[in-house]
Design a protein around this nucleic acid. Structure first.
Lengths: 180, 180
DNA sequence: ACCGAAAATGGATGAGTAATCCGCTTCCGG
DNA sequence: CCGGAAGCGGATTACTCATCCATTTTCGGT
């Protein structure tokens, strides 16, 4: 049974209102007011704040999947570095992405699949990078993701938002120590 | 004029209660209840949450000053690396330290001086590290502090709390790129 | 020892937010 | 066009932050 038309309308209004206030914290009351619906309606569509975050982040997740696929399929030497840069940019762009990637919740339909695909491709690219000597052997995909989040955090602390030096530092840092 | 005895007692009770709940978020009502004083008293002593955080962090700040002094005075080759490791440990140990170090507020008496001393010594140690080729020339003390915060964030994301690999990554990352 | 002013106290209060619950409304297939 | 399921709204409960001020406590001066 397809969803009722008013439900679809409400959902879209809520998402639009939430997107308006991007950057600010998600305040459900405020979003309901801006969307012109009751608070109850917001909770009906998104039982938790996390569910709403996932819905807001879906587009970014899809972009990340594309980037990950391209990195896996391509034969670029620097695929891993490029992917890391892209991932950092996406996370800086969409403050909710980090939460969605790290949380095991996956409440919105399809999000779990998206994440699985992203991490699978990521893992493959990481594996190649490890073998080519661009990344230390003792780092797994989870630690790398945590590091990206840490660098995202550091970039946000700076007023300039200049990610370049911090990305360089991350890439240089995760390279295996040169033998001496 | 020295402070009234009841004021001293209240202050100490509040700090003790706040320390009890270390780790949890600072909830003023809860702290007041546990301290056996009224909420109003808490606000009288600590007008903002930040002031309370500073008071709670003073001891850690003093330890950091000692570490920074030692790093400046010593002639150790690795003074900078050691200091960075110590700073990371202190930040991991005291969740409020980051906030106090980064905020320009300095509401509690003496905190501004402590911070000035810490950063002055830190800056000197960093300068030596730069000249000895252990650190890229384009990084200033603020960026380094932001990086430490980012690494702290990354370590906290991990369940293990194992800081070692992340500290290595930070140290390796901020080294100048080897000429090729 | 006492007193009065100043300092400190405590908790009632107002304002803001999260989340639930349920009577009413809207939708849509038969 | 009708009945019941799905959806809706917002009143409500519960919680926290932060302020304000009548009352209590302290303490230096007498």
């Amino acid at each position: 049974m397809s969803p009722r038309s008013d439900a679809v309308r409400s959902r879209e209004r809520i998402l639009a209102a939430a997107r308006d206030g991007r950057g600010e914290e998600l305040r459900l009351n405020e979003i309901a007011r801006r969307a012109g619906v009751g608070v109850g309606t917001v909770y009906r569509h998104f039982p938790t704040t996390h569910a709403l975050t996932e819905a807001l982040t879906r587009e970014t997740l899809e972009r990340m999947r594309e980037v990950a696929r391209a990195a896996r399929e391509g034969s670029d030497e620097d695929a891993f570095a490029l992917f890391l840069g892209a991932a950092l940019d996406l996370q800086l762009d969409d403050g909710g992405l980090k939460t969605v990637l790290l949380s095991p919740a996956d409440e919105e339909p399809g999000v779990a699949e998206l994440k699985r695909e992203i991490f699978a491709a990521f893992d493959e690219v990481l594996d190649r990078a490890r073998r080519s000597g661009a990344v230390r052997a003792d780092l797994d995909i989870v630690q790398i993701e945590h590091l990206i989040c840490g660098i995202e955090y550091a970039v946000r602390l700076g007023a300039s938002g200049d990610r370049a030096p911090f990305l360089e530092i991350l890439l240089a840092g995760i390279r295996p120590a040169p033998a001496r």
